[in-house]
Amino acid sequence: MVQVGKDLLATVGGLPAATSPIVVEASDVHKWFGHNEVLKGISLTVKRQEVLVVIGPSGSGKTTFIRCVNHLEKIQQGRIKVNGQLIGYREDANGKLVEDREKNIAMQRRDIGMVFQRFNLFPHKTALENVTEAPCQVRGIREDEAKTIGMGLLSRVGLAHKSDAFPAQLSGGQQQRVAIARALAMKPALMLFDEPTSALDPEMIGEVLEVMKELAREGMTMIVVSHEMGFAREVADRVVMMDDGQIIEDGTPEHFFTNPQHERTKTFLSKIL
């Protein structure tokens, strides 16, 4: 078992200062891929330090939704705000959504960490370089300072000895832990996890979940798309069930495990549990 260090966030100076009690606020979000409506009016809020787990069958739009939260996907209707700020768009005089300037969108994404299903580490950079790249390039932090922070993060996720390894030399679980460290190095106010353990061999899932649990314990605000119900039961504050582009059930983990209301939720849970 990988030893996950305490004080993951202390290495980057703790949680960012609170700007509002509500971190994510989505209201009536619609998205179409061509004629195919994949999000049919999603509304939800995520409070500061809350851990929200999104479950649902494939094609239900859960991945698309969290990709909208940092504007990797455009939306056609509705609003998504992070820390009170409209993400990716501004409203014109008539209240219509207009896509924001690229520079501003990049600025907003600095504070939203994202972990991908396929890790997406930069293969031409070492583990440490993966972690220091954005702080140096985007935040303008001095290289030696970024290295100190990067080594701190890598050792907290149990990979100090792999700092000079290239992604191709790491196992899937190790790569995903580097990816989490890479996102944390930007000192995000919110972390998005897009099926972080789905591409992993079963015995590597635990080490990644350990890191995520530690993050949750330290108060990181997180949206996690995952089918890891054990994780949901242990650390989630709230679970939402999506189906066919809609949220069909929203509640505490206990609610989902003991008393799911929706028929679709019941069949879905019976299949994955």
Partner: peptide, 29 residues
């Protein structure tokens, strides 16, 4: 892999910086 550009963007890089630092160095190979 388009995931490379997405990862770079999700870290707050602009398209130009992501190209210069992440995509083109890999494309060079």
């Amino acid at each position: 892999d388009p995931g490379q550009l997405e990862a770079a963007k999700s870290l707050g890089m602009t398209y130009a910086r992501a190209m210069r630092r992440i995509v083109l160095p890999q494309a060079a190979r």
